[in-house]
Amino acid sequence: MCIGIPGRIIKIDGRMATVDVGGAMRNIALDLIEDASPGDYIIAHAGFAIHKVDEEEAIKTLNMIREITGSVEDYDAAF
């Protein structure tokens, strides 16, 4: 039940945001996070954003996996 779905904030109106979750537009409450802006990725759970996805950390994790697996190609911010 603790499913969290990543989505991208399209616009913000007060404490509510319109979030693109895999192509579907959802109204998501922002009461539980700070400093959200349009363009940010968030993790949505039960109608609330519970976390702002850290893009830099995401890239680091993928690069770490690539390092373990000996793959040369790096993910970069262009993704």
């Binding site: 009461d31 539980l32 996070i33 976390h51 950390e57 994790t61």
Partner: peptide, 18 residues
């Protein structure tokens, strides 16, 4: 933490405050 893109050591203090 493996899931760094969604988890930090301190967690979400705003949510815990609420």
């Amino acid at each position: 933490i493996q899931y760094r893109r969604a988890v930090s050591e301190e967690g979400n203090p705003v949510a815990r405050g609420v």
